[in-house]
Amino acid sequence: MSNLDTLKAKIKERLPDLDMVVGWEQGFDPLRATPLFMRTEEDVDRLIWNPLCVHNLATYLPGLKGRKVGVVVKGCDSRSIIELLQEKLINRDDIVVFSMPCEGVVSVRKIQNRIGSLDYVESVEADTGTVKVTVDGSSQSFGFPDVAASKCGRCQYHTALLSDEFVGEPNNEKAEDDYSDVTSFEARPQEERLAFWMTEMQRCIQCYACRNACPLCVCRDHCVAQSRDPHWMTQENSTQNKWFFQVIHAMHLAGRCTECGECERACPVGIPLLLLKRKLNKEIEELFDYKAGTLIDSTPPLQAFKVEEDNINERGW
């Protein structure tokens, strides 16, 4: 039996005690997977697990609080669950976590950049060696690392950090993450950095897909960006205002963001939002030696108080 078949069997076994199990199925074209809400055994038969399963399904959990829900996760997705548990946004007893070792997922955007347009994809064969995409009868093959999500290249958690049903051999490889993307951006002059973000943010359509796709952005319906009373933010669509929202999002996620990349993936106009989130996480790591969603028993640093922080010289002036 393949790992996927074993996983399906496990889900079918647990399904009678659950309202639903969230996984993935093939979407509207050969490149796009889509979240699958399994309620019956026939639903489970449609489950897929492959490098196209890009979505972080933990995003759905806070909205389903109070129901018994199973969720299929990749290693990185499991960090969101840990963070949600730490913040008591979901109940441990209500969720069943299914997982398998993850070798990485593709970046649909990187594939788009290579093939030009995603409009005509006819077939896709994706494994963690190569990704072969056929468009208009002609095929192109890419080495997996070239079209993998950037987070997969620096993954330290191929194996879920929390799971109830794990199928397959755990993979304990750990890549280095030196935040070199952030440091090289930081090295640029301030005016240039600001100009970069203003150029990027100009095309933001204020759809808030970035916010709603984020598993930890849990205010959603009561977000400062849209609340009318109090009327925190102007409804003007100036670039500065769009940027203002992103800074708020990033600040609210500091020390909670697990760098799942959903914000950036969800953005319909391709704004590189993860760079901003990683900048704050780099600060958090330096200040508090903390990586969100990795230790189930710890408290996120901005939700705790310590009289003397180890890395902050508060009274040493």
């Binding site: 699958l36 759809c207 808030y208 897909a209 709603n212």
Partner: peptide, 13 residues
């Protein structure tokens, strides 16, 4: 609607 995340991408585009 189970998988919809209630954003504005569809309507704004």
């Amino acid at each position: 609607s189970a998988k919809c995340i209630s954003c504005g991408a569809c309507t704004y585009l």
